[in-house]
């Protein structure tokens, strides 16, 4: 937990370690390779020449707004849809020609929490065990094990229709893990969940990743990609528009953001006048706050603080923050996510 910062992101050092792990493993062929895939539905180009790779044991966040093509990419990689062109492979197996063997090694949890509402949690997991060709006894014991692990052991004998949204998602995730897949696809795993359930699910996903599972995660939540993914591929309108670690994407903007709140609107106004030449001012919610985008590096922060010091304007709070992925996305696509 010492890796977590206040806002739920990883501290810089931890992020570096995670990236090292990704770099180290890059000598081994990628767990997922996607080469120029395209898919068209009528007039709509859902995917228009998308390529990326996911190294073994790492997490790729596929980030984009609704309709960007994320789910189509997941469907192609999980063998439920064939691309119009291009090739994709999972663990070196072609998703088209070797679909059956790909299915042995992957797990899929979708945004619709695809479990049978009339069955109990334990029956759902039993069924998944049988359909992934575990024996009767293995299906039962694995079901029990997963219910405990996902905090559903008390609810295991209840019909899923009595579950809360968060419980359903956890069961859905458990269902994807029954046969211990080495590559996991999570299609918007937390969409529609309340913040608390979302954080709970993030913890569970974090543990899976620590076990060495390769994960492809689609999301429209930047915080989610920031927190869980080693690398992020941003797609928009069926094309990859940016790729890199969270830090790299943020560095592309090349700015740092200074946020300050003052005791009264007059001081804030004075500060605005002083700071305007130093960077790009954005007006905050009320008259007492300001937000200033400056070039990355200590110099610009020192300049700003110096200017306030000389004018004897002391803010109530003063914070320096890195740009969020939201800022990045806004810059890349001209639109906000969510």
């Amino acid at each position: 937990m010492e890796c977590m910062t206040e806002n739920g992101g990883y501290a810089a050092g931890c992020r570096e370690n995670r990236r090292d792990r990704a770099t180290m493993q890059s000598v081994i062929p990628d767990a997922i390779e996607v080469d120029d895939i395209a898919k068209q539905f009528g007039e709509v180009r859902a995917l228009d020449g998308v390529s990326f790779g996911v190294a073994r044991g790492t997490v790729l966040g596929l980030l984009g707004p609704n309709g960007a093509g994320k789910t189509t990419a997941v469907r192609i990689l999980t063998t439920t849809m064939r691309p119009d062109r291009g090739r994709a492979s999972v663990l070196g197996l072609d998703v088209d020609h070797d679909a059956q063997r790909v299915r042995e090694s992957i797990g899929l949890a979708g945004q619709y929490a695809a479990v049978d509402e009339s069955l109990t949690g334990s029956e759902n997991l039993w069924m998944m065990g049988r359909l992934t060709h575990l024996s009767q006894s293995a299906s039962r014991s694995r079901s029990k094990e997963l219910l405990v692990r996902f905090g559903l052991d008390d609810a295991g004998d209840r019909q899923v229709k009595t579950y809360s949204g968060g419980m359903r998602r956890r069961l859905d995730l458990a269902a994807a893990l029954v046969h211990r897949p080495s590559v996991l696809f999570l299609d918007e795993p937390t969409t529609g969940l309340d913040p608390r359930s979302r954080r709970g699910l993030w913890d569970v996903i974090g543990e899976l990743v620590a076990d060495g599972t390769t994960l492809l995660l689609t999301t429209q939540y930047l915080e989610e990609a920031d927190r869980l993914a080693d690398r992020i591929v941003v797609i928009d309108q069926g094309q990859v528009i940016a790729e890199g670690t969270s830090a790299q994407l943020k560095a592309r903007i090349g700015t740092t953001i200074i946020e300050a709140v003052f005791a009264d609107p007059a001081s804030a106004e004075g500060a605005r006048t002083l700071l305007a030449p130093l960077g790009e001012l954005t007006d905050a919610d009320d008259g007492r706050a300001l937000s200033l985008q400056v070039n990355t590096g200590p110099r610009s922060i020192m300049d700003a603080v110096g200017a306030l010091e000389r004018a004897a304007i002391e803010p109530l709070t003063l914070a320096v923050r890195e740009p969020t992925l939201d800022d990045v996305f806004l810059r890349l696509t001209g639109q906000r996510v969510e």
Partner: peptide
Amino acid sequence: QSGLIERFRSLPMAPSA
């Protein structure tokens, strides 16, 4: 509609089952 068939199709089970 519930997505259950989508999941079934990603499993190594027989499609006709």
